[in-house]
Design a protein around this nucleic acid. Structure first.
Lengths: 218, 218
DNA sequence: GTCTATAGTCTGATAGAC
DNA sequence: GTCTATCAGACTATAGAC
């Protein structure tokens, strides 16, 4: 049997403690993410998070040096997950446009399940904090790059309007994933989750106006 | 009401003090609105507002009993203005759809000029405060009613997709007026204000996907 | 000026991984 | 059995409503 010892080729066997540490860190991110989505950055208190996770406040600070960095870690994880999702869709989905639609739908479902919108817009203070976080910038940069590639493909395939610049589409999609309409609709309309998401995605890509819309030259 | 002045038929002549009071109140609302848009509800402090207006903090509280009520007054005024704008468009604009497009464009231009998005979404705490403000509820109700009428007309004229329910369109338009995409685009894309607004309005009504989009039966 | 809320720190006690 | 991480919670300092 492969002793714990430093034999090469042995998968890194983590100590029980280290595993616990990682599990707790994930739990903290989950709790903070939920709070962030429900009450916002300013109103979420470190005491509340600690209480929700069931750990002491001091232990919270063993994982994250400050409230800002904790919130940044939440959004960082979400950015990474979104990117992973996009990668997965690159294999699954049939066309570039289908990938984009599926990614927006996925993001909206995440939010219905209680996730934060992937946007600093929640709080200007948080936005400011993130602007100086290199890890977050990097993760968002990667995500943007993947999306931009997808947008370019969709345009080349004639699936996206040619008169809109790529950056505009990118920002629009980002914003649609964080759409405040989701909250408005949840409060006002009686729709199932799936209907809600389908309508929002369709509204985003197909528009609200009736079919004959632009006088596009062929 | 005409008794105040000596002669009847004279427009109500306000005292100097009352005029000053109203001017100051408007100035407070302007300052608070700007702060609200720039830094958000939680981060805007009463001290900051007082300083910006150039009055003592005590005077602030002569006008508004609390921070919550001040913020509510800002959004209330904006709701009223939006409604006024919709009324004006009912005369100006040619079709119901044109009215809706023009209203969204107007709201976006307001935001470019520094106004708050007309939405509690900025801050969950603020949203909670507004949920219990009858004046705000009433103003938003009136605005929604006007918009719903316009939406119904546009649908009847075949200008809006028939497969989307009115409430869905209403919430979507509301959200588009508060679109976080505006801020993202301002930071990322080099577009003039007018281009920015035109693109956003077009994205909202015409969608991002290329023309042949749904297999609509006639 | 007063008072509350909360970020962030520190400590002595304790459980449980090693 | 030792030793380290965690716990509960008191504590400081600051910001900001009123």
């Amino acid at each position: 049997m492969i002793t714990a010892g430093p034999s090469a080729l042995v998968p890194p066997r983590k100590s029980f403690r280290a595993t616990q540490f990682e599990l707790r860190e994930a739990a903290i991110l989950d709790a903070a993410g939920g709070l962030l989505a429900r009450v916002g950055y300013e109103a979420m208190s470190m005491d509340e998070i600690a209480a929700e996770v069931g750990i002491a406040k001091g232990s919270l600070y063993r994982h994250f040096a400050s409230k800002e960095r904790l919130a940044a870690a939440v959004l960082l994880r979400l950015a990474a997950r979104t990117r992973d999702r996009l990668d997965a869709l690159t294999i699954e989905a049939t066309s570039p446009l289908a990938r984009l639609r599926a990614l927006v739908a996925w993001a909206l479902h995440q939010r219905l399940a209680g996730a934060v919108p992937l946007l600093a817009s929640t709080s200007p203070a948080l936005r400011h904090a993130l602007e100086h976080d290199p890890h977050y910038e990097a993760a968002m940069g990667e995500l943007s790059a993947g999306l931009s590639a997808c947008i370019a493909q969709a345009k080349a395939a004639g699936e996206l309007r040619a008169d809109l610049q790529d950056d505009f589409v990118l920002c629009s999609l980002h914003a649609r994933c964080c759409d405040p309409a989701l909250d408005l609709l949840r409060a006002r309309c009686a729709l199932t989750d799936t209907e809600l998401v389908d309508h929002l995605v369709s509204g985003c890509f197909d528009g609200l106006a009736a079919a004959p819309r632009r006088a596009d030259p062929g």
